[in-house]
């Protein structure tokens, strides 16, 4: 059983989401968007939070590469 590292997928997805949202938040936010969210640039802040989450998972996967039990003996069939 050789499983790929889920932490890298989480880092990839939220890294991508984070960047997209930060770009929208900084460059493409209209006054209507701001008014809808009570003056908060929610895309920007949510994007930053997601980027941080991605960075944490990427760092974890880099520092502790062992993920699943890859060398496990198959269990005897019952």
């Amino acid at each position: 059983m050789r499983l790929f590292d889920l932490r890298l997928i989480i880092a990839f997805l939220f890294g991508l989401y984070g960047v997209v949202l930060v770009v929208i938040g900084l460059g493409f936010t209209s006054d209507d968007d701001l008014k809808k969210a009570e003056g908060v640039n929610i895309n920007l802040w949510a994007g930053i939070a997601m980027a941080v989450l991605a960075a944490v998972f990427a760092a974890w996967a880099t520092l502790r590469p062992q993920f699943a039990d890859t060398d496990k003996q198959p269990l005897k069939e019952l």
Binding site: M1, R2, L3, F4, A68, K72, P74, L75
Partner: peptide, 21 residues
């Protein structure tokens, strides 16, 4: 698609080979 590569027995498929953290 990626998980498919790690499946080689029924236990892998139905119980993830009992290998998850």
């Amino acid at each position: 698609v990626m998980a498919r590569r790690s499946v080689s027995s029924s236990l892998d498929f139905l119980l993830s080979g009992r290998s998850l953290p």
